[in-house]
């Protein structure tokens, strides 16, 4: 797969993800989430106004809003992938994106389960790094290994309430990690 083809594939994931994301969110919260995403209101105001229109406690409101917001972040990131970005940064590393009062400590198990389920194609066994084309990302999102809190997307957040995200990994680091890409077709 060429860099251009992979970038297009990532765009397709973003398009499909956008439709799926729209189904997750309670529609009555959408205007408030949009305002929060745009930085027009803060979380305190969102909680107050959401409580007026959505019969749920703070924990549930936060849960929906933050999940939706993080999905939007990932979708924007995927949609912005270019052939140049894919060529210079062929992989992602799973990293912590936000602090948690009680963080999950099972990401190694999740990674190993997802890697085992996909034959470690394009993925490192001893680092949370995998090529952007690796099927491990979809397996992680599907909860490989029996994790029932998986959201079902091949992009962060991979589990409900998760603060994990991904960051790009340079070609030089991929080479050092021994991650091998499929031969590119330059035709």
């Amino acid at each position: 797969m060429t860099a251009k083809e992979l970038a297009e594939k990532l765009h397709e994931i973003a398009r499909a993800g956008t439709l799926a994301a729209a189904r997750h969110l309670a529609p009555e919260l959408q205007p408030l989430v949009d305002a929060y995403n745009a930085g027009e209101i803060n979380l305190a105001e969102l909680r107050e106004r959401a409580a007026d229109v959505f019969a749920a406690n703070e924990a549930r409101i936060d849960f929906i809003v933050k999940t939706q917001r993080r999905m939007a972040q990932s979708l924007g990131q995927l949609a912005a992938q270019t052939p140049g970005q894919v060529a210079r940064y062929p992989a992602w590393r799973l990293v912590r994106g936000g602090t948690r009062m009680v963080p999950r400590n099972d990401w190694l198990r999740r990674w190993v389960a997802a890697g085992s389920a996909t034959g470690w194609q394009g993925a490192c066994r001893d680092d949370f790094v995998a090529l952007k084309s690796s099927p491990i990302w979809a397996a992680l999102g599907q909860g490989a290994g029996g994790f029932k809190d998986a959201i079902g997307n091949p992009f962060p957040p991979f589990a409900f309430g998760s603060g994990m995200t991904w960051e790009r990994v340079s070609r030089a680091e991929c080479d050092a990690l021994g991650l091998v890409e499929e031969e590119a077709d330059n035709g």
């Binding site: 992938q81 140049g84 990293v95």
Partner: peptide
């Protein structure tokens, strides 16, 4: 488009690292 993608990724990564240590 390449420049926009590069800058957005740079900023995104920077904000992530900043957010982890500034509370």
């Amino acid at each position: 488009r390449e420049i926009a993608a590069e800058i957005s990724e740079t900023v995104r990564g920077h904000l992530r690292r900043y957010a982890l240590t500034h509370h």
